[in-house]
Amino acid sequence: MQIDPNKSIFIQLADFIRFEIYSGKRKPNSRLESIREMAIILEVNPNTIKRVYQVLEEEGLIYCHSTLGYFVCDSEAKIKENKQKYVTEQLKSFITILKNCNVSKEEIKQILGDIHGDY
């Protein structure tokens, strides 16, 4: 993972782990690196990792086992639900931009058609 020094490490890291779970790269019930391991891999403050794990735990995306550490949520339905919520939020803010720029439906279709190849 490449960390952009001009942006919040906390936000970048939370998104990074979310994406890995949403995309299926991290499987349900698989173990996450411990806070220290993750801190060493990324060379960031262990407190930041701890905060990220706490937030993801509140979202229900990961859970903490008292002795074995952190694991990805075991319910695929829950992950899917979170993923849809996340994508919806992102699309909403995207649509706000389109509205603010007063982009018509035809234009959107055209732009989507143009960039479809990149996706």
Binding site: I3, P5, I9, L42, E43, V44, N45, N47, T48
Partner: peptide
Amino acid sequence: INEFEKLAS
């Protein structure tokens, strides 16, 4: 600074 800023809280 850049060597250490990721580490510092």
